[in-house]
């Protein structure tokens, strides 16, 4: 039943460009898809390991900058040395974006998982701010507030078939959809594996997990690496689709958008970020014809409070309980509820 639902939804998304010709709506769907991938990656930390990482946009932004700079080329002076980098193909940019974001996830994970609770939250926010200020001030490399403009469009190189540049909206739509599906399957596999069960155990009761021999930091860092790498992939897609990025990509509000997507959809569920992403990605566009952007944000804020107060598990688990009450085996992730933190020193 659940699987059939997912397949019908995928078929709907696959055929969408055939009957939806409006370029603007396609544009919105593409950006929504990119942010949904980012939200899915955040869910891995926020939902499955229970770590409220509020610096997630840093990995998204790093992915975007790495990919853009790889494909645009740059030359910077560091002390007496000059580094010149000639433009590389977009595929190389994408791969580097994933790798370097993942590496940053490793470093930040190693450092910040030494602290928990409020400290962890503030370290992650601080990290994103430092990265923003570096992007703003290292003008030689990043162009700072002048923005990195004219970033090349995504180009797929298939051995034997040559290179195909994705100019139009439709190919970009399918590219984002493909990456999103790949990310979904990757997360699904991961969560279903031994590693995933260890992560969930951590969230449920960290001290118990430790006592049964789970290496907490190792699993958290692993989650951080995968999460950051996926966010970097989303950032790369974003850079080559909108073709311009500037340091404001690192603003806290973007992390908050991802958090709203995850929390509203249902943290710790596979479908949660997808549902949350689609709702909060497309809603502003529908609202914008009638209301100023301020109202849209006020609505976001109210919705966030509403979700926490009324539907703490999020939309997906709530709907699932209604639709499939007979599901024999409830997914382990749906067990998560709001309860007083045990690890937090009182």
């Amino acid at each position: 039943m659940r699987r059939a639902f997912a397949l019908v939804f995928l078929a709907f998304l696959l055929t969408l460009p055939l009957w939806l010709q409006d370029p603007y709506l396609l544009h919105i769907l593409i950006t929504t898809g990119i942010f949904t991938i980012a939200a899915m990656s955040l869910n891995l930390l926020l939902g499955y390991t229970g770590q409220l990482s509020l610096g997630h946009v840093a990995f998204f932004g790093i992915g975007a900058y790495v990919s853009a700079l790889t494909t645009l080329g740059f030359d910077v002076d560091i002390g007496p040395w000059t580094f010149v980098h000639e433009p590389w193909p977009v595929m190389a940019g994408f791969v580097l974006a994933v790798l370097i974001s993942g590496l940053c996830g490793y470093l930040i994970g190693k450092l910040s998982f030494r602290v928990r609770g409020a400290y962890f939250v503030i370290v992650t926010i601080s990290f994103a701010e430092v990265v923003r200020l570096v992007a703003l001030n290292w003008v030689d490399l990043t162009q700072g507030p002048l923005a990195l403009n004219n970033i090349p469009a995504f180009a797929l190189s298939v051995p034997g078939l040559g290179e195909h540049t994705l100019w139009g909206k439709v190919p970009n739509y399918y590219l984002v959809l493909a990456v999103a599906v790949a990310a979904y399957i990757l997360i699904k596999r991961l969560v279903g594996s031994r590693i995933g069960r260890a992560m969930v155990a951590l969230k449920e009761n960290e001290s118990l997990a430790v006592s049964v021999g789970i290496d907490v930091t190792r699993y958290l860092v692993l989650a951080a690496i995968i999460s950051a790498a996926l966010a970097g992939a989303a950032g790369s897609l974003y850079a080559h689709y909108v073709k311009i990025i500037d340091p404001e990509i690192f603003l806290f509000i973007y992390t908050v958008t991802m958090v709203i997507m995850v929390v509203a959809g249902g943290k710790g569920t596979l479908a949660g970020p997808v549902v949350g992403g689609l709702i909060f990605g497309t809603l502003p566009v529908l609202l914008r014809s009638y209301l100023g952007p301020e109202f849209q944000w006020i609505f976001y804020g109210l919705f966030m409070i509403f979700i926490v107060f009324v539907l703490p598990q999020g939309i997906v688990p709530a709907v699932e309980q209604r639709l499939f009450p007979s599901t024999r085996e409830p997914p382990p992730e749906a067990l998560a509820t709001v309860e007083p933190a045990k690890g937090e020193p009182q």
């Binding site: 944000w297 409070i305 926490v308 709001v338 007083p340």
Partner: peptide
């Protein structure tokens, strides 16, 4: 007050919501 006993991450989400609302009310 309605959130007494909730864990620190949950209240944080509520405060983030309040932050967004307040900032945009100022903007309006």
């Amino acid at each position: 007050r309605p959130m007494r006993g909730a864990d620190i991450d949950t209240t944080m989400l509520v405060m983030i919501g309040a932050w967004i609302i307040m900032q945009n009310l100022e903007m309006l």
